[in-house]
Design a protein around this nucleic acid. Sequence first.
DNA 1: TGCGGCTATTG
DNA 2: CACAATAGCCGCAG
Length: 583
Amino acid sequence: MVTEAHGVAGALSAAGVGRGDPVAVAHAAGVGVALVAPTGLAVSTGDEEAAEAVRRVEDELRPRWVWWSGDTAAALVASGTRVAACWDIAAVHRLVFGGWRADPGRVWATLQGLPLAGLPATRGQPDLFSSLDDDGGSADEPVRPDGHLRPDWAGGGWSASPERLVRWAELAAEVARRQQARIAAMADHPRLAATARVESAAELLCAEMSADGLPLDRAAAEAIIGGFVGPRPRTEREAAEQRGRRDAEVLRHAPAGSDFDLRSPGQVKSLLRRIGVEVPDTRAWRLEARRDEHPLVDALLTWRKAERVATTFGYGWLDEHLGGDGRLRGEWSGSDGAAGRMTASAGLHNMPADLRGGVAAEDGHVLVRADLGQIEPRVLAAVSGDRDLARATAEDDMYSPVARQLDVDRATAKVAVLGAMYGQTTGHGAHALRRLQMAYPVAMAYLDDADRAGQTSRDLRTYGGRLIPMGSTNANEVSDTVARSRAAARGRYGRNAMVQGAAAELFKLWAVTVRARGAALDARIVLCLHDELLVHTPVEHGEVVARLLDDCLQEAAHRWAPDRSVRFVADISVLRRWSEAKD
DNA sequence: TGCGGCTATTG
DNA sequence: CACAATAGCCGCAG
């Protein structure tokens, strides 16, 4: 057992640990870290030395860190340590086995083939019976006689000691090996191991983005918000007065003496009926078409926009998420529960475009923005192996050659392609859709198969190997039409998940490549937006980073789809403010 | 107090 | 208003 930071790196090096070799790490505040290498060497350090030990091992050996979940990544980032590569057991579990829950007890039971129904309750959901049961095992051993992990270990609620940290890291190392063996045995999905490494790196990126935040110019953001809802109210009374004034701007167009709550969709519908505007619902796109019929409709649409800012993206939003350092922080997750796109809280993924003027580079820095052009149809061409559709990706705008091929105009071709990927079957697209079937039968068959899988509850895997669970058909207690429409919805979901999920895989590979190559230039990814990256970097590196973003895209595309038959394009610009981007 | 429905925003 | 997400408020059930 080595306890000093400089000794840890030396000991691991002497054990033969080199670049890319696995080193499992477990951490606990107040105790430190345990590092376990394949040769069986176990090392632990005290708290002060822990971060330094990890840093030294990273600098000198550059291993692939193995850990249970992104919690460890977050702890490392918080201690000022950024590592290059990892194997994130929870992220890999979600990738290979689907769903979102990936706590150690569930991961372990899945790999052991133990029934998940017998999963012991973990921390947060205390189970009186199992915790009081005498299972005949030792509390010092994480695996119970019945094969499941002890809930106190699996839930992370155990009282840590150096010995237990070592045992927990050893177990992580073993689980990672079992995951790799399982992946290697899945010969039908040869890209799964590579995808698992990218998913793991994406978790590192998420931990860093969560810690770094998005640079936001508070004064500029407050000016934009003020333009919608007025100056920051100093009291609750002032806030109520502002709300009242906004409401009055709409209600003055209403019949005298009427009293309607504009925040209640049902009452808004009644109000609209009173002024002669009959609508099935009050969504903006529906009201937009009838804006000219009555001044109240126009006033209501303006009110909605201001109300949105006031309630969700106003001063309260800044107070809650914008730090004193000018960084807006939310929690980033490497994959959602469905097709595997990244998600973010604090409104980072749905901030109104009007507020982009507030997103600004810090002094001496620039933002480099890059967004992929037409990523989903290009990804469809790649994953389906449709050579004719792949040929269309040679052009910057692939809808033009598709339109020529279908002998329709570009707008029609675009709607048809998007409709095929999303599952739209009605409307004007139907005619073009038939032509699409004729022109690109391979791509269309790929989508149709995914659709059938969804309809029949057959699980799918994306190009990169992510499991798309299709659940079970709930056939009882519903009418025939409802059952049919639900089946159709599952079909659309499956169809889209294969494209959206594969696009997310390429996007993440691009992002983690930029993360790796950009580190030396102090280029930090501050926002991932499904097909768009925002990178914060010193002004003198702006142009180099812009070129780097395209280089990384080409590298990622080649690693992801090695035959190079599909071209991927990005629009890249160097900005001071996000709002300067022209799209 | 929890949850489904409605609405808005983003890709 | 197809596919995905986060988030807020209203109305209703418990």
